[in-house]
Design a protein around this nucleic acid. Sequence first.
RNA 1: GGGUAGGUGGCCGAGCGGUUAAUGGCGGCAGACUGUAAAUCUGUUGGCGAUGCCUACGGGGGUUCGAAUCCCUCCCUGCCCA
Length: 418
Amino acid sequence: MENTALEQEVNRQLAVLRRGTAEIISERELGEKIRVSLRTGKPMRVKLGADPSAPDLHLGHTVVLGKLRQFQDLGHQVVFIIGDYTARIGDPSGRSKTRPPLSGEQIDCNARTYFEQVYRILDPQRTEVRYNGEWLSVLSFEEIIRLASRFTIQQILERDDFSKRYHAQVPIFVHEFFYPLMQSYDSVAVEADVELGGTDQKFNFLLARELQVQHGQAAQVALMMPILAGLDGVQKMSKSLDNYIGIAESPVDMYGKCMSIPDGIMGQYYTLLTDVPETEIADIQRRIVEGTLHPMAAKKRLALLVTERFHGSTEAAAAQANFEAVFSRRVSTASADIAYEDVPLPGDLSGQPDVGVVDLLFMVGAAASKSELRRLVQQGGIEVNGERIADIGFRVSLRDLPLRMRVGKKRFLSVNRE
RNA sequence: GGGUAGGUGGCCGAGCGGUUAAUGGCGGCAGACUGUAAAUCUGUUGGCGAUGCCUACGGGGGUUCGAAUCCCUCCCUGCCCA
């Protein structure tokens, strides 16, 4: 009787946690850990390591964070590790290049901005934050050597990114080999029951399991989420590739960026970023193939759901309306129902009757250089109050403000008096 | 330590004394079209007070009327040997 209820709960938790995962090593062990946790009333310790070099969170990060949140909702404890010490090395994960190391101040500052964002998803009450410098900085050289002696170069070279670089004859520095060791040692230090991350972390997770066993602990369960593709649909979402959707972005940009993903990765986005049931997602995909559901309609719903998650339904609906006005109905800048970015008229222009388009746009910060703006004009990418400007010498009258301008496809400016 | 091949624009990669701001590809941007900031096609892609000027081919120095291209020197990387 007791036992049946327990097993039901174990299965319920497993079902929740399984959704969207790429791999769990192993599911049986996870079930066992949940069972023990329920019996003893001791929550599982679920580890996530974060690299403090990229303080702007994007949707790619939310895939793993969302999964952590599910653990919390099931009563478990998240152990969030800031890799301050690791950041001084430069994580080679998924990279073809060595990362530059970070300074202490940068790391602190990054960590602060990081948590402002992380707590939009995680429950601070069930989150324990640790810096790995706490235990890594006190290791003696002898201890480090001993740690390193447990693994072989060949094992480390098994790692995909290392072996790629090795075969491509791209330099791999010796210190980079320590990254997996440090991360694994983190698991030992915090006695992790489960570790979460992307599939690119698999090697590190497995290494941690071995190291924990060597230290007399039970091996952690490794739970890997798929890597979210970026806007290009091919590479992983990342800031450095500039193919990301930031969680702090405006509703309009968030919606628009969602609409710019290739049709082919919609399914992935649905599973990893929304809570639409998996059966329904399969149904959506089937109907697109059949031709009974327009891909654009499916994508609009996705964009709406994602935007709602971070901005609420009112803002999301407004973003959708704006998108339809600008891109479906192609409303010109003469219209008022477009989301404009307000910019003040530069001070030294007040009193002037008119100004050259290029100069005005430059002063207002619409582009990095005047050459770029000239190019935009010549290519027909500039519109002022609904009129496309073709001449780079065009002078804009400053008599009637606000001035509505379109710069390129997606920037809309409204120049106002201060 | 020895030998050898290299370091070119956001990235990859040609050029090897003179129309070379530097072929090409990727990426970016714009336009057309459309089903969306999808797809496809076309154009464009260092900066500026602009028929010219400035900056740029790892750093510094030199040869020359003229260098990314030749010489010296320093720094960095791959590969082979020890």
